[in-house]
Computed example of a mutant assay.
Amino acid sequence: MATSRILRYVESRKNLTGSVFGLVGLGLTVAGLAGSLWPVVVGGLYAAGALIAPPERPDTPEFARPSEQLEELRQDFAKLRDYLTEVSLPAPAAGRLTDLNELITSLLDPGWVADALITDPEAVHSLSRAIRQDIPESVDAYVRTRWWSRLQPSAEPPEHHLERQLTVLHDEAHALAAGIHEAEARRQESHTHYLEERRQAP
């Protein structure tokens, strides 16, 4: 720890600037201008250089590019689908989950839809939350509650909650897809207006 701090200081702007000023002091000493006070002159110039040096600027953190984020999301979705194949679900919930998986697959498949998705950070976040949190949590909660309901039957069967949750998630994913389609439609319309205005220009 101490060694790394020393190395960081040696390479710092303060030390480098102070060293340059200190060399100037040594030059004055060699020229006979510092006299017997040369250690004070050299030390003072070093300190002055270290004080006026600009502060260290930490490196900007590097984050995954949007395309990399989408690829990681595809990998996590593949893991989720593997997990879901091991879970036994009632037919209505299984059907709703199949529809949801197909919709997410169509959004993540490489192509123009995924390219449009990349440009919308909120959409990527929403899809990421569904894959990494909402869907697995809904299914896991159903599995755990179903086990308890066998011992202590509840008023509302756990599969009803699962169906309602998957319906909400499907609606959210459908709205996300509709938003991408709407953005592309606006883009097409804008290009039409541009071409028509260009034709009418003198």
Rank of each mutant, 00 (worst) to 15 (best):
E11I: 03
G18L: 00
E137W: 11
G27I: 09
W148A: 15
Q152G: 01
V87P: 01
S67Y: 10
G179V: 11
G43P: 08
V30T: 08
S126I: 14
L100S: 07
A173G: 06
I118F: 14
A53Q: 11
R164G: 13
D109Y: 10
E159G: 06
E137L: 13
D99W: 06
L7M: 15
Q188V: 14
R150E: 13
G111E: 04
T105H: 09
E172R: 09
A78E: 15
A141P: 05
H125P: 00
D59W: 03
F77W: 00
I52H: 04
Q200D: 15
R74A: 15
W38A: 13
T17F: 11
P55T: 06
V139G: 04
E11Y: 02
L107M: 13
L23I: 09
D134L: 05
L195F: 13
A155P: 03
A114K: 12
P158C: 10
H170W: 14
E102L: 11
R96T: 04
L117W: 12
V30H: 04
R81M: 11
V30Q: 11
S128V: 06
R129K: 14
G22A: 00
A201S: 09
G35V: 12
L151R: 06
F63S: 03
D120S: 12
A114M: 08
Q165L: 10
Q188E: 11
S149D: 15
